[in-house]
Amino acid sequence: MGRDGTLRQLLVLTARQALGRRRMLLALLAACAPVLVAAIYRIAGGGEYEAWTAGLLNGLVVTTLLPLVALIVGTSVLGGEVEDGTIVYLLVRPIPRREIVLAKLAVGTAVTAVVIGASAVVATLVSLPGTAGPGTAVAALASVAWGALIYSSIAIALSLLTGHALIVGLAYVYIWEGVVAGLFTGTRLVSVHQYVLGVAAALDPTQPSLLPWHLDLATSLVLGAVVAAGATVLAIARLARFEVAERP
């Protein structure tokens, strides 16, 4: 069996684990919220749909649900195995540690992108009447996928750095991304939230006018890639030095 086969095994195993965890139910419930809110607004005939949809996507989806679900899923795909001890069965196999991390990252990203991406697309199509809907939906999907990759890589690295990855991750998202990164122009350059908004603004023609300030596409892609790559390299290095210990 070649390396492709090994990676496929890791992907299938991780997907079965991720989809079988109770946390997944929480993620799915969270993903329903934007659709529900959009439906209520549309039925109520609130008006100013473009601005309202941009607010829904930026405020609820990108700021809150995307990092939340990425952290929930991302800390469980590898952290769950560390916690329950099954990681040993992967570590005692002749497979490079990077394959384990990359498989976990791929599944974490895919699950988050599908769950939150679907939520964003459906919510956009529900709330935005006329021809603007599909363009905004595609931009929302792409930016959510980009954010899912970056947040998942951070979550996986955290799950190898600390036993309280979810708590630390939530503190980072809501203190750094939610408060500090919004206060100063300089801190926006080191904000995943801004990388996601940068992609959304570049792809969606209605967004630039609605976002008072945003990074351009190239900066969002380059800085986002640096963060994702850095977190992934850190995770691989940590897994290579991972210690399975039963402390006396």
Binding site: M1, G5, L13, Y89, L90, R93, P94, I95
Partner: peptide, 12 residues
């Protein structure tokens, strides 16, 4: 079977 495949055996 998973263990055999991760061990990269020719006939898992």
């Amino acid at each position: 079977l998973l263990s055999a495949r991760l061990a990269r055996l020719p006939d898992p």
